[in-house]
Each structure stands twice: as structure tokens, then as C-alpha cells.
Nucleic acid binder design. Structure first.
Lengths: 272, 272
DNA sequence: CCCTCTATCTCGGAT
DNA sequence: ATCCGAGGTAGAGGG
């Protein structure tokens, strides 16, 4: 087969039956710490903490920029063999068409050997940049659900009286009472709170005080800007910083148990 | 960049900025359950058992023949996002260059959305065949080590007297005594035993009997052919079938504890 | 280095 | 279907 490939960005391709040329391409990619994807027919041996042999078949082998090696079969979520990024990788030509990729990990001592009988394609990704942040998060709505169910996350002894509480033209996230039975207005932010958030809550508090409520404010957020923290301090607004990971864990927990009880409900197995 | 690709087997490539053509290639690959590898700039959203957002960056996305989706960053062993094989996958063009791959899993309800801003290359692997068996194994030497340490795996009350025991010109794997203190010759095979293995052990037994030993034989193997089983029965040779998984677990256990005690030895923390 | 706990764990087996 | 346990678990957090 013959193919003209146009408009290629950040990608190089090598094909053909000349193992030494493929090896050179791979070696160069490894040296420069480029992303490497090899699709071909290979067998794999591993020995270290365990010991395995994978007989010959078509596989996709990925070597990442940090040296992680993944051997994937054409089906299944999990790699059949792998090696973490700390290992040293070598490539060499064996016989005529053969190509052998070996990854040796120092501690624990582990060796992964991929022997290619036939390489269909070598793909090199160079200049790939991935700075995108990865977050497992709860959005503001869910965060408020969690707080409504567990107000003690905000303050010990707190009881929610009303959610989306209206004061004049405004809506505040929660109207609550603390353990001294005093009124509290609570505003929740799922992002780092700035001065604007403090001002917003302060306006609610002023409006409430105009209506003769004796009320204090709590601003709940994953974080506060320096300015927001200072302003809140000055205005007597309490800051409660929540731990996103902790909240996320609670959210997952809720979700799981919620689904469980829902399943039981629909299958008529609820024991009410 | 422009490239002529020659001698391509089992692989198709699509590149360029025309999202609709790329989408068509991908759609075709999905329909035909081909292996699909997409390298490009994308953001990823997931919601289901958890909830996550991955901001834009260069990634490698793999869709396997069973519909598993793996989103890998250029570094790290684990996929940053994924979906198992049971899900339904759709691809569509969004705006001009945009391409959106969505995988929906029914139960538990989970959605994975990969939004490509820029696709560097689409690789389709067709006709890939992978029937190669994967085994986590112990070889015969290690199997014998395990039996030597734990003869009860072969028979209750067995004591190993000698390993690689010589009888005339032959070597049998073990010379042992059973709980009645009778002599036993044991032969170990790490593969399914055939008639040959039975005959081999029988020769050892004959040789031993010529030397006036009162001895019986045990053939240990992961399995026996029908013929081997019948012959062993007829010759009064006991068959012991070992469970490879169980043996492997013991091997790993041995290895771990062995390394542990070795480490302790070398670090001078052994408490002899 | 170690140990402990988590995970969108996955995967397989048994019920 | 669900529950249970293993994994070359890997990875994060803490000492």
C-alpha cells in the first residue's frame, strides 16, 4: 500500500520492512523523549514481581514521554503488559525483520521485553504539549446539596432553615440558624472567592438588617483571594474553606448510596 | 508537512483539517469495530460514578475493537479518562474544525465526551488479529523449588529426601518418603503430561526396582492427556494435578517474602 | 525508604 | 444481577 499524507502536525510516521530504519526512528524518539506508538505483531515477556509470557499477536505499544511502556491488545481496558516511567528502554534489531524493545526497571528489578516480528507502523509525536488541568469536581449545585444535608461541614450546630432564601430582590444560598439560634446567611462558591463574593454577601446582610434581622454571614468556598479574606475580616463575615477532595469524596459517597437506595426502591425491595 | 508512506499493512491514516472527512474515517472505523488511535488537541468531560474535567491539551485517544475508550496524556502510566467496552460511541463534527467523540455507558450511567479542537492524526488498524495466549506462569525449576519447600502440595505427609536423584544413568526430580516411610519417586512437568512423561517415570521405577528398592511413582503436572492418565492408572503411577494459578500465587508469595528477608539481611536488620 | 488507604479502580469467579 | 477478592494493582499521602 502507498499513501500520501499531507498536513501533518507534531507527528512523524515510519513504516516498511527495514528493521534498522524503524529502529533508528524509534531510538531517536526515545532519546528525544517523544511520544511513541508502535502497532505491530509481537510477543511479550515480563519478569519481575511476577512472570508472564504473551504469545504472538497484533498489539499497540505506547512509550510515553516519561518512558512508561504500555502494551495493549486490540480489546480490553487494561494493558496486558506495562512498565512504569522510571525504567530504561533500549531498542535493537534482531535478525532480519525483528525488532526488540526492552525496558528495565531498577527497583523493583523488572524486565519487559517486546519482540516485534512485524511492525505495521511507528508513530512519533513530537512537541506535544499538555498543560491542561485535570479536576475531579463537584459543581456549585451539588456542593449546596451536600451542605444542605450536612450543615455541620460549615459550622458545628448549624441548622438550615431555607435554601435559596429571598431577601428583597436578592436570593442568598442558605438561611440558617446557628447553635445559639442566631440567624445566619450563607453564600456558597465552588471557585476561589474574590472581593465580589464578599461584597455580594455583605449586600444581603445589609438588606436583612434593614428588615430588622439580627444576622451574620458565612462565606463558604474552596479558597479566598487575599483581598477577599481581608475584606471579609473587616466586615465581620466568617470564612469557611472547604477541601475539594473531601467534598468530592462525600459527593461520590452520596451518589453511591443514593443510587443503591434508588435501585432498591425501584426493585421494590425497600423495607419501609 | 508532506509525506509519502509506503508498505502499509493493516493500517489506514487520515490527517488534515477537514473535520467532516476525519469524522467519516472515524465513523467507519467505529462501525467496523476497527482499532482507532487519534492524536490531537482535546478537552475531556466525564460524568458518571464520578465527575471530571480535563482542560485542553495534546492527548492520545484509543478506541479499541470492543469499544473501550482510553484517553492518555503524553506522560503517566494510567489513562486520565476512560470508558469500558460496553458503551455506545458516537462521533460528530462541531463547528468548523471541531470533532466530538462521545461514549455513553448504560449501567452504571456514564458519559465520556472528548472534544477535539485539532486532530493531528487518525490511525485505523483493520484486520488486527490477536489470539496469542497470555499466561502468568512459573517454569519447571521454580515449580520444583516450591514443591521442595512444600511437599504437602503433592501428598500429605511427604518428605523430600533428595532432589535430582540419580538412579543408574537417569535423574528423577525427587526421591521422597511418604508418611508410611515408603520410597517414592516424583517427576514434575510444567506442561500437560503426555504418555512420554509416564513412560519416563516408569523407566525410573523399573531401574529402582532392579536395585531392590520398594518404590512407587508420582507424576506431578498441570494436566494429563487422556492417554497419559490411562497409562499411569494401568502402571500404578499416581497422578497429582496442580493448579497453575495456585502455584503462581505461591511463587509470588515466596518471591515477596524472600526478597523481604533478603532486604532485611542486607540491611543488617535480621534478628538472628 | 517504608507503610496505609484510595480508586470512575478493573477483572474474574461464585452465588 | 450482585457480592467478594485479587492485582506485576498504581498512586497519593504521611512518617
Amino acid at each position: 500500500m502507498f499513501m500520501v499524507v499531507d498536513d501533518l502536525k507534531k507527528i512523524d510516521i515510519a513504516t516498511g520492512s527495514e528493521a534498522d530504519k524503524l529502529a533508528a526512528t524509534i531510538k531517536n524518539a526515545l532519546d528525544k523523549k517523544h511520544l511513541l506508538v508502535i502497532i505491530g505483531r509481537c510477543s511479550v515477556d515480563y519478569e519481575g514481581r511476577g512472570k508472564s509470557r504473551l504469545e504472538s499477536g497484533d498489539r499497540i505499544v505506547i512509550v510515553k514521554q516519561d518512558g512508561s511502556v504500555l502494551v495493549h491488545r486490540p480489546v480490553g481496558f487494561a494493558p496486558v503488559n506495562w512498565q512504569p516511567g522510571s525504567a530504561r528502554i533500549t531498542i535493537r534489531v534482531t535478525g532480519g525483520r525483528g525488532l526488540e524493545l526492552v525496558s528495565v526497571r531498577a527497583s523493583p528489578r523488572e524486565i519487559l521485553r517486546v519482540v516485534f516480528e512485524d511492525v505495521y507502523i511507528v508513530i512519533v509525536g513530537f512537541g506535544l504539549s499538555d498543560a491542561g488541568e485535570f479536576t475531579m469536581y463537584v459543581d456549585e449545585e451539588e456542593l449546596k446539596n451536600i451542605i444542605e444535608k450536612e450543615p455541620s461541614l460549615v459550622e458545628e450546630g448549624l441548622r438550615i432553615v431555607e435554601r435559596e432564601y429571598r431577601i428583597g430582590d436578592f436570593y442568598v444560598d442558605f438561611y440558617a440558624k446557628d447553635k445559639m439560634n442566631n440567624d445566619v446567611l450563607i453564600e456558597v462558591k465552588d471557585e476561589k472567592a474574590g472581593v465580589g463574593s464578599v461584597v455580594q454577601l455583605y449586600k444581603y446582610l445589609l438588606e436583612a438588617q434593614r428588615r430588622n434581622m439580627k444576622v451574620r454571614g458565612i462565606l463558604v468556598s474552596v479558597g479566598f483571594s487575599r483581598e477577599a479574606a481581608m475584606l471579609a475580616e473587616k466586615l465581620g463575615i466568617k470564612r469557611v474553606e472547604i477541601n475539594p477532595k473531601e467534598i468530592y469524596a462525600k459527593y461520590i459517597e452520596e451518589k453511591r448510596t443514593g443510587e443503591k437506595s434508588l435501585e432498591r426502591f425501584f426493585s421494590g425491595k425497600n423495607d419501609n
